[in-house]
Write a protein that binds this DNA or RNA. Sequence first.
DNA 1: AGAGTGATGTTCT
DNA 2: GAACATCACTCTA
Length: 194
Amino acid sequence: MNRLPQDWYFRDVVEVARDLVGRHLRRGEVVLRITEVEAYRGPKDSAAHTSKGRTPRTEPMWGPGGHAYVYLCYGLHNMLNIVTGLGEGTAVLIRSAEIVQGEAVVAERRGGKTGSTLLTGPGKLGQALDLSTGWSGHPLFEAGGLEVLHGIPARKLIAGPRVGIDYARAKDIRARLRFADADSTWVSHRSKLR
DNA sequence: AGAGTGATGTTCT
DNA sequence: GAACATCACTCTA
């Protein structure tokens, strides 16, 4: 299975977000199929990290697409985002995935848990891939490390508001920028999607 | 199904 | 010193 080329990410962030559902994420022997994402539309989007200005932490988000943006949330969760566009401050948060390969390794990293709660949520995904903020800025279109592959695009998408952004403006909270594979059970907060 | 709560540490004011 | 794109757990229904 081949990697997606860098210019694949040079499009509108919502378009890339929808297109990312069903794609594969590979790190070593572990391969995951993305089932749920959220789009963050840059400085004008009050829910996006880039709306608060340029800082060392958010630096990868201001660069060209195809790179990872990883940050620590609540002191314990490493969240994986994929930067899109050409230095527009836009990115897609990867929220959930299904296991394609490496189930034993993932189960061990997740504390021996099994079933469909294994990878539903961005913190769990970071744990399954053993990510840290050191991966922030990593090119996903190059071989080795962490890669995004073609995978199997979703047949049908469902959408809803983003999760955990109560601090944003009302119109940004309402915006339906969370997308998931309608056929997958590996999706968080499923009742709020349609 | 939904609400409440404590754990945890980096980032920026 | 406050805020924070969460999780796992405990209730109550």
